[in-house]
């Protein structure tokens, strides 16, 4: 009897976990109540048209090798932060830069699918360009002073976390035989999703 008790408890503990797992995620609702840093952190991570190309960038950085991945860690989050600040100080270019974001999904997906080794300046230039564009389009409201700084830090941290974790993970994975193939297949998925999204956006379908 006694021997069996822990097993029963363990199973009972699964019930609340399963209950928790079945609740829908209200990410954007939460972000409005946790202050500007978390709002900034969550905003790009909860928007597919941001998070998908950022994932692609993190993986592409790994394909470029450890030097590219290291410089990207510095360049991308900084560009994102500058983009957010530009977005709040010089608003009005959102509509145009949305196309920059769409182009980033297609281009990064294509580069990843073909696993192209770019010259370092070209790769970092792309990373900065897309960072600025994505940062700019992450501005959601009229923020000033400390609130803007916190929000900007949050968005840049999201960018840093994503490219750091994915870049490091992918650097390990691409050393395996199947690793580079898996990363390239993922790139083709991202390219395909980007092409579909670009098509829907061009032809006036409701987009992100």
């Amino acid at each position: 009897m006694l021997r069996n008790r822990p097993i029963r408890r363990w199973h009972a503990a699964l019930v609340p976990i399963a209950l928790l797992a079945s609740t829908p995620a209200h990410a954007h609702l939460v972000s409005t109540r946790f202050g500007e840093f978390y709002a900034g952190l969550l905003h790009p991570l909860t928007t597919l048209s941001h998070v998908v190309p950022w994932v692609a960038l993190g993986l592409l950085a790994a394909v470029q090798g450890i030097r590219g991945a290291r410089w990207n860690l510095l360049a991308f989050p900084l560009a994102v932060a500058i983009g957010v600040l530009l977005g709040s100080w010089l608003p009005g270019f959102d509509a145009g830069l949305q196309w920059g974001n769409i182009a980033s999904i297609v281009l990064l997906g294509a580069l990843l699918a073909t696993a192209v080794a770019l010259p370092m300046p070209a790769f970092l230039g792309l990373s900065v360009l897309f960072g600025l564009s994505h940062g700019y389009t992450n501005v959601v409201s009229e923020l000033e002073g400390r609130a803007l700084l916190l929000y900007t830090t949050g968005v840049a941290c999201a960018g840093y976390l994503l490219v750091a974790l994915l870049g490091a993970g992918a650097l390990v994975v691409v050393r395996q035989n199947w690793g580079l193939v898996a990363v390239r297949a993922l790139g083709s998925w991202i390219l395909a999703a980007g092409v579909i999204f670009a098509g829907f956006s061009l032809l006036g379908q409701p987009g992100a």
């Binding site: 048209s49 998908v52 999703a193 579909i196 829907f200 379908q205 409701p206 987009g207 992100a208």
Partner: peptide
């Protein structure tokens, strides 16, 4: 594609 659905999410989903 359902008219009211988010196109990016639809693309990601079916891919």
């Amino acid at each position: 594609l359902p008219q009211s659905a988010n196109a990016m999410a639809f693309g990601v989903g079916f891919v």
